[in-house]
């Protein structure tokens, strides 16, 4: 990515971005929690059922259970933080261009046809921006 295309602000349109962020997290975290929760329960229940003898469960299974819980307690916030950052980047890729498009269209609506909509090469709405820029080029030529 070109240096000038780097994002400086990741929160440009809070309402929209938070909605997308919520959707992304719900789509990723909820199924992941559901599946891992079921697996977690199933694995330990089956192992406990297999070991059967209470001392064996207490001696062999409980230490594993505690270790996994400790890993989860420390690991989960990290994973959630990483997902939040990823969600923020993805939501910015959608919300950033919409914010810019709205701002530039407001300028055009005021009669400033010299303005051109700038987008990053990998932004989602670059095709629309290029088409609007072409319309603006044609409009300016006709005015001349």
């Amino acid at each position: 990515m070109h240096k000038s295309e780097r994002r400086k602000k990741y929160l440009v349109k809070k309402g929209l971005q938070f909605r997308y962020l919520g959707l992304i997290l719900a789509a990723v975290i909820l199924p992941a929690l559901l599946i891992s929760g079921c697996l977690y329960y199933l694995v330990f229940s089956l192992m406990a059922e297999q070991l059967a003898i209470p001392e064996s469960i207490a001696y062999n299974l409980m230490p594993v259970f505690h270790k996994i819980n400790a890993v989860l307690i420390f690991g989960m916030p990290l994973i959630i933080a990483m997902l939040l950052m990823l969600g923020l980047r993805i939501s910015h890729k959608i919300a950033g261009p919409i914010y810019r498009l709205e701002k530039e269209l407001d300028e055009i609506a005021k009669g400033n046809f010299a303005i051109r909509i700038k987008m990053r090469s990998r932004d989602e709405l670059i095709g629309i921006a290029q088409k609007i820029n072409r319309i603006l080029d044609m409009a300016q030529e006709k005015i001349k």
């Binding site: 330990f44 229940s45 192992m47 406990a48 059922e49 059967a52 003898i53 209470p54 001392e55 469960i57 001696y59 299974l61 409980m62 259970f65």
Partner: peptide, 24 residues
């Protein structure tokens, strides 16, 4: 824990859905 040996023992086990809540 190192002396838990018995010549004979009989268990009555009360399993729980949540394995660590099982009683014996």
């Amino acid at each position: 824990i190192e002396k838990d040996d018995y010549a004979a023992r009989v268990y009555v086990i009360f399993p729980s859905m949540i394995f660590f809540n099982s009683k014996a």
